[in-house]
Nucleic acid binder design. Structure first.
Lengths: 117, 117
DNA sequence: TTGACGTATTCCCATATGGGCATACGATGG
DNA sequence: CCATCGTATGCCCATATGGGAATACGTCAA
């Protein structure tokens, strides 16, 4: 089996840097494909393709306006990622880190299990 | 060009569900490959491969203990993801949503009231 | 109608993924 | 030295990616 499709979920969709850039730009408000092309210095076809992926995963919304298509950020789609990562915050935030260290120590003492001397 | 390598950064490494599972298990503490194999119901070779990727991206740490290798979570590696996603939180958290609405309103009403220090 | 514009779609291709399986490698115990 | 455990690597392959370039729409302007 190959890697999971980019359209599998937000995690895969967002793994691509360009797609993250697009979302960053869209965070500033609705944008047309042309706007994005200008902002990203990327060819129009690729932008459209990336937008398609983002759309399939529900990270963006489209609205038709004449010949243009205005894309809008659907931030909620990022929540799963946020939630998952947040669960690890304690592992790099100093406050939690110190607490963990203490707990580890206590655990070691109580366990009374060491192998090196 | 094909998709960016899974070892490019945490975003790509974590796009794979199995890899996320591994990190979830490691969050409970140091584990040997065998432990992970048991916990994940995945073949040993694949586990080792995934661990390799996670290691190359700095999401895990290894420690040798006899014939075993104990892997440890290096949560800090997830910070970039956390930081990036956090920037979008306002787009789905109600509190921020309400705040944005207020700000938008104010912006429309008192346009030109510069306040800086 | 003709033509220009704004976007989406299609084709081509080098790339490397992730699983399955076999096997190599280092450490430990007889 | 030999057997075995714990892990890492090597191979094979179906899959689909993402960029480039060409082109097919759909819409608005003369």
């Amino acid at each position: 089996m190959a890697r999971a499709a980019t359209t599998t979920d937000a995690f895969n969709a967002v793994a691509e840097p360009r797609r993250r850039q697009i979302l960053d730009v869209l965070a500033r408000g609705e944008q047309s494909v042309t706007d994005l092309v200008a902002a990203l210095d990327l060819a129009q076809p690729q932008v459209s393709k990336h937008l398609k992926v983002l759309h399939e995963v529900g990270l963006v919304t489209v609205r038709e306006d004449g010949r243009r298509r205005l894309y809008r950020l659907e931030g909620r789609g990022l929540k799963p990622i946020h939630d998952w990562v947040a669960g690890f915050a304690r592992h790099w935030e100093d406050r939690f880190g110190a607490l963990d260290a203490v707990l580890e120590e206590l655990k070691g003492e109580t366990d009374g299990n060491d192998h090196e001397g």
